[in-house]
Amino acid sequence: MILAVSAYLVSSAVVLVRAPQAPSWTEAVATLIGAAGVAGVLLAAVGGGSRLIGATRDRRVADREGSGGGRVFGANLLDDARLILGTFPVQGSQTRRLPMTGTFIADADGLSIWEGPVADPFKIAFVPWSAIVEVQASRARIGALSSRSLHITLHDSRVMSLQPLGSGLLNMFAIAPADLTRLVQMLEEIRAHEVAQGHRSADLA
């Protein structure tokens, strides 16, 4: 969508500039429209390229780590999510600062985040299900806009907001509402099952 609109702006600018006997004000308008179009094309190219790398890493992690039935998805870390995940580091983590976008695995143990090169991604943080109270679909503000998001509420009342990706150009935008609903249901089912299993184990101990 961004790429299509940007390309339209660029072509409109070209038409204005080449118009016969164009008034002088059209040059200024054409310059503004063309600049907006070029900026949009660059934004789509950079964002799309970054997401392409992220999607490739998602598949790599899924092939290598997701064979146990875990759900793998790519997501942007919104609001305080990076700070919150930073309080759940894994032993031997190779990074001090969490990325803006990462690969997540939700499995029987909990929720983990991965980053790094496509050829050799590594786990940088892990949140056990015992630390999570609820997973729900919501909306979060990103700049001047709002987007579908995943809100994860922790036992200490902190809320971690993620934006699962998977729609639009190169799947660089938030996943569709139906996909988000299915993701939330899956995560809640895994969480509820594992929490119940933990309680049973504690009762038998």
Rank of each mutant, 00 (worst) to 15 (best):
M160Q: 15
I33T: 06
G37N: 07
G48V: 00
L150M: 14
R57W: 01
S161F: 08
A45V: 07
A192Q: 15
I105N: 00
L98R: 04
S138K: 02
Y8H: 05
T101H: 08
S149I: 07
A108V: 10
S130L: 11
L187N: 12
L9G: 06
M186K: 06
L16H: 03
S138W: 00
A178G: 07
A7E: 04
N171S: 09
P23M: 15
R97L: 08
L16S: 06
A106E: 03
I190P: 00
L52Q: 08
S67L: 03
G68Q: 13
S93R: 10
P20A: 14
S146T: 07
R97M: 15
T31S: 14
R200T: 08
G40N: 15
E189N: 06
I175V: 12
V195P: 10
D79G: 09
S50Q: 09
R60D: 08
A55Q: 10
S157K: 10
E194I: 03
R148N: 06
I152D: 05
S12E: 04
T87E: 07
S146K: 05
A44Y: 06
I132Y: 04
A62D: 13
R71I: 03
I113L: 15
S112G: 01
R191H: 14
V135G: 02
S6C: 09
I84H: 07
E115K: 13
G68Y: 06
T101C: 09
T26A: 10
M100E: 11
R59S: 01
L150C: 11
M186A: 12
G66E: 01
R57Q: 02
I84W: 07
V127Q: 09
A62C: 13
V14M: 07
S112M: 06
L111A: 12
R57Y: 01
A108N: 10
L98M: 14
T31Y: 03
R158F: 15
T87Q: 15
G166C: 05
D109H: 13
A28G: 08
T181I: 04
G48K: 08
G116I: 09
L43C: 15
A176C: 02
L162S: 07
I2T: 11
P99Y: 02
Q136F: 00
R82H: 03
A137N: 12
V17E: 00
S93I: 11
S147H: 10
V38H: 07
P121L: 07
A174T: 01
A55T: 07
L85A: 14
W25M: 01
R82I: 03
R148Y: 01
K123D: 01
R60A: 14
R139C: 08
I142N: 08
R200K: 06
D63Q: 09
Q197K: 01
G198E: 05
